[in-house]
Simulated scan of single mutants.
Amino acid sequence: MKRVCVFCGSNPGNSPAYAEAAQNLGRTLAERNITVVYGGSSVGLMGRVADAALEAGGEVIGVIPEKLRAKEIFHSGLSELHVVDSMHERKALMAELSNAFIALPGGIGTFEEFFEVLTWNQIGYHEKPCGLLNINGYYAKLASFLDDVVGQGFLVQEHRDMVLTGATPEELLERFLTYEAPEVEKWIELKKRL
C-alpha cells in the first residue's frame, strides 16, 4: 500500500479530538512511508492531515478543482498539487492515484466521496479497501444504518462488510492489509436465482 486517499472535513468540527485524529493519521501514514492523497485544501481536517504528514517527512498529493483553488483555500506546500476542472475529475484522479481510502469525520462531501469509491468497489471497478476512522463514535450511527440496510434487503452482507472501521489509524491500516474484495453478485434478485 503506497498511497492512501483521505476524505475528511474542510471544517475542523466541534471536538478537538477530530483535529488530533487528522494529525495522527497524517503522521502515521508518513511514518509508514505511505503517501497521502487528498483534496488539496489548507483548511479544516484536510489541512491538518496534510500538515502533519508533511511535518513528519511524508509525501502529500493534493487534487483540487480550479473553482476551489481560485478561492485560495489550496495548500501551497504540498509535494504535488493537481488542479482539475471539476469535482468529477477530482474524485476520479484521487481514486486512480490511491491504493486505499479512509474517511475521517466530515460532512456531505466526505460522505459522497466515500460512498462513490465504495460503490465502485461494490460493482467491481476496483478492489481497494475503504475504511471509516471512527473517532469518538462519529460513524457509529452510519454503521448501524448500514446494518439496517442489509436487514431491509437493499445490501448484501458481503458488501456491508466492505466498510472497514477502526478507532485508530493503526487498527484501520492493519485491516486494510488483510482485505480481500468479495466476489458476490450485487443484485440480490440475481443472487437468489443462482
Rank of each mutant, 00 (worst) to 15 (best):
K2N: 15
V4Y: 05
V6Q: 03
F7E: 00
G9K: 02
G9E: 06
G9P: 07
G13Y: 04
N14I: 08
S15W: 13
P16L: 12
P16E: 15
P16A: 12
A17T: 12
A17D: 15
A19R: 15
A21M: 11
A21D: 09
A22R: 02
A22F: 10
N24G: 15
A30N: 10
T35S: 08
V37L: 03
S42Q: 12
G44W: 00
L45H: 07
D51W: 04
D51A: 10
A52T: 04
E55N: 14
G57I: 04
G58E: 09
I61G: 01
G62K: 01
V63M: 03
I64S: 04
P65C: 07
L68T: 02
F74E: 15
G77F: 14
D85P: 09
E89M: 13
R90L: 00
K91Y: 11
K91W: 11
A92K: 15
A95L: 12
A95H: 11
N99F: 10
F101T: 00
A103W: 04
A103K: 03
A103S: 14
L104K: 09
G109N: 04
E112I: 06
F114C: 02
F115P: 00
E116N: 03
T119F: 01
T119V: 05
T119Y: 02
I123E: 00
G124Q: 08
H126Q: 07
K128R: 10
G131K: 00
N134L: 01
Y139Q: 05
Y139D: 04
A140W: 09
K141D: 10
L142E: 02
A143V: 11
S144N: 11
S144R: 14
F145C: 04
D148H: 13
G151W: 10
Q152C: 15
G153M: 08
F154E: 02
L155R: 01
L155N: 02
L155F: 06
M162N: 02
L164E: 01
T165Y: 01
T165F: 00
T168S: 06
L172C: 03
L172P: 03
L172E: 03
E174M: 12
R175G: 04
R175Y: 05
F176W: 07
E183N: 12
K186H: 14
L190Q: 10
R193F: 04
